[in-house]
Write a protein that binds this DNA or RNA. Structure first.
Length: 552
RNA sequence: GGCGCUAUCGUCUAGGGGUUAGGACGGAAGAUUCUCAAUCUUCAAACCCGGGUUCGAUUCCCGGUAGCGCUACCA
């Protein structure tokens, strides 16, 4: 009865976030691993909102969590809310109390002081409460004195009539056992476990109780969750056993941490830890999932880019690591709102986008670039996300069909340029597919297709390599003539422009660059002929004319 | 402080008593090219420290150190 139910029954797993903040990447990974495991094994995935902490729960958080999960698109099979299951929780507490495995503690709640980080010794229980006689306890409860219900962690040799397998009395000591699918055999002396609370003095269940009660009631077979619960699991085993349930199989996941090794927090690390940030920046959900899966888990072969189906097929608890994994984002300026306008993706990469301000004399080495003012070098999103996440996203983008990618790009584009049609987007997409890492990059990579009027650019850009203003003018003049007549298709454009270059006695590159800058407003852009083809004769000619004027 | 978990290139990881310690991202160089990308080639880059066990440890064991987690009537 104490063995994990290892029968042939289909697994039932759950993801149980507490709605006290946005959905962060660590939680998302936990959700994903649970989902993959369920899919892999044909099991059932349960979403349970662990909202027993009324003080800290917010609706905004619930919204954020659902938004994030919805974006991931993995779904779930059943859904519950702990706050609606209070009766069940209290029932389990009562059952444990009736068995004498819990007791009332009338000590006023801790004021929440600094004592937690611990100066001396381990706190195990409040003096006097554990051994209160039942009569005394009942009397004070009946008198309306508030109390917390605490678990009576075994400390004497007689407590559990017949000790279950997971809770053993050996060599004069009580110990709690369980086997973690990731961390292996785990044992802890009961003497190191404090009499934790089951019920608060307001009657609300604590996390430990509610979680176990629900896991038991929902017949959860595998608890896959963050490693921060590894030591809590001993308490949970105690609860399961006390309530007469076989503890489920546990699998703890290594934590996701920031580059400085600390755990991810919004306050310290900014929006990079929130799932919706990745969505808004233009990550593909499948790429984001792929990235997260590779943090703390490995398929054991050399694959990195994997589809959802491949992940499902390859997923196993055995592939999970034990060491924390860092999400390698840039810590610097992430929290500050990047100025949305003008971040030209190409020129931004051409010159270092992060400028060390003078007077920032830093004793090189330890100083952690703490932004002194949000107006300094603003890192573009490309600079803030984990480079591997970016690369994987670009990989997945390249793997999409033009039609699919085009459809995903269109909404991002229409946010800023409502008039862009699906047809036009479909023609632009192949020109930028290899040039964007995030969907949002379309706005900087293809801006010149969307605007009527090119933003101002430096006329000097129009001057070709090893050339001068005269050459630029000569080229543009010739281009105007040629482009007035040639058919606007790749091959004819190619032939006509190359012939023109030869005629002028300039290299092809010297011919193309002024035209490119004239129509795109910058040097770095998609291939010229395809670009012209999409832009069309009218726009092309108009922009070349403007460029000529700039040079004069 | 107590208890627990962990430790392979900068990062994610594979591996495991004898290996040129493998892959990926990122970095560097080169090829290709109308620029930028993409693509291809090449290079640099790691077993935390100290003991033990062993013919031989990066791998096994112990200790140290470091990091992280728990130590709440938070989850």
């Amino acid at each position: 009865m104490s063995q994990p139910s290892s029968s042939t029954a289909k697994p039932r797993v759950r993801f149980a976030p507490s709605p006290t903040g946005f959905l962060h990447v660590g939680s998302a990974r936990t959700f994903i691993f649970n989902r993959l495991y369920a899919r892999r094994t044909g099991g059932t995935m349960i979403l349970r909102l662990d909202d027993t902490d009324v003080e800290r729960n917010t609706d905004a958080s619930v919204t954020s969590i659902f938004e994030g999960l919805k974006w991931l698109g993995l779904g779930w099979d059943e859904e519950y809310k702990q706050s609606e299951r209070g009766a069940l929780h209290r029932q389990m507490a009562e059952a444990i109390f009736q068995k004498g495995l819990a007791y009332r503690d009338f000590t006023p709640a801790h004021t929440g002081d600094s004592e937690k980080s611990g100066a001396q010794g381990t706190w195990l229980f409040n003096p006097g409460m554990r051994e209160l006689s039942p009569q005394e306890s009942d009397r004070r409860a009946a008198a309306g004195e508030p109390f917390a219900l605490r678990f009576r962690v075994p400390r004497e040799g007689t407590m559990w009539g017949q000790p279950p397998l997971a809770v053993r009395f050996a060599e004069g000591k009580w110990q709690v056992h369980f086997t973690d699918a990731v961390y292996g055999e785990q044992v802890k002396l009961a003497a190191d476990i404090e009499d934790f609370a089951l019920l608060r003095s307001d009657g609300m269940p604590t996390y430990h109780l509610a979680s176990c009660a629900d896991d038991a009631d929902l017949r959860i077979s595998h608890i896959i969750r963050g490693q921060d619960h590894l030591s809590n699991t001993f308490k949970h085993v105690l609860i399961f056993e006390a309530a007469g349930y076989a503890p489920p199989q546990f699998a703890h996941l290594p934590l996701l941490v920031a580059p400085d090794g600390t755990k991810l927090s919004k306050r310290r690390h900014g929006p990079v830890v929130s799932v919706t940030t990745y969505r808004d920046a233009g990550f593909l959900p499948e790429a984001f999932i792929n990235f997260l899966c590779l943090l703390g888990w490995s398929p054991k072969d050399d694959r990195t880019k994997m589809s959802l189906q491949e992940l499902i097929d390859a997923f196993s608890l055995e592939g999970i690591n034990r060491a924390n994994a860092v999400v390698n984002f840039k810590e610097s300026d992430v929290g500050r709102a990047p100025s949305p306008a003008n971040a030209d993706i190409f020129s931004a990469t051409a010159t270092p986008s992060v400028v060390i301000p003078s007077g920032f004399a830093e004793p090189k080495g330890e100083l952690r670039a703490e932004p002194r003012g949000s107006d300094l070098g603003v890192a573009s999103p490309e600079d803030t996300f984990d480079p591997k996440a970016l690369w994987l996203n670009a990989e997945h983008i390249r793997g999409l069909t033009i039609e699919d990618l085009s459809q995903r790009l269109l909404p991002k584009v229409q946010e800023k340029y409502p008039n862009v049609t699906p047809e036009k987007m479909l023609r632009i997409t192949p020109l930028i597919r290899e040039r964007i890492k995030l969907l949002r990059d379309v706005l900087t990579a293809a801006d010149f297709f969307f605007v009527e009027q090119l933003p101002p650019y430096d006329p000097a850009e129009l001057i070709p390599q090893k050339g001068d203003v005269a050459m630029a003018l000569k080229v543009l003049q010739k281009a105007k003539e040629v482009l007035a007549n040639v058919e606007f298709k790749h091959d004819p454009l190619d032939q006509a422009l190359r012939a023109a270059a030869q005629l002028l006695g300039v290299k092809a590159g010297q011919m193309f660059q002024p035209i490119r800058v004239a129509v795109c407003g910058r040097k770095n852009a998609p291939p010229l002929f395809e670009t012209l083809e999409v832009l069309g004769r009218e726009t092309t000619l108009a922009r070349i004319k403007q460029a000529t004027q700039k040079l004069n």
